[in-house]
């Protein structure tokens, strides 16, 4: 118990050390979460549009209309 509280105290600098770690991991975590959530949302949208036989419809669509020509 003593070792833990001594560790958390950071030699009296807890007020500086922990907020900086918190800020770094907090902000980077939020950015990661937002990026993942956006990707998931886009993937769900695409899956809905393409339907269960997404592969087949995608082949029919012209590559140019895909926004990304294959060449």
């Amino acid at each position: 118990m003593d070792a833990i509280s001594k560790f958390l105290e950071m030699g009296g600098y807890a007020g500086y050390v922990w907020p900086s770690y918190l800020a770094v991991f907090g902000l980077l975590g939020v950015l990661l979460w937002l990026s993942r959530r956006g990707l998931k949302a886009a993937e769900t949208d695409l899956a809905q549009l393409e339907g269960p036989d997404g592969k087949a419809t995608r082949r029919q669509a012209s590559p140019a209309a895909d926004g990304a020509p294959d060449t």
Partner: peptide, 21 residues
Amino acid sequence: VLMLRMRRELTEGRVRARRQI
């Protein structure tokens, strides 16, 4: 995160293209 964001944007592009079709 770069890959996540890029994948997201490319996927969104495809969603837009598909909606247009």
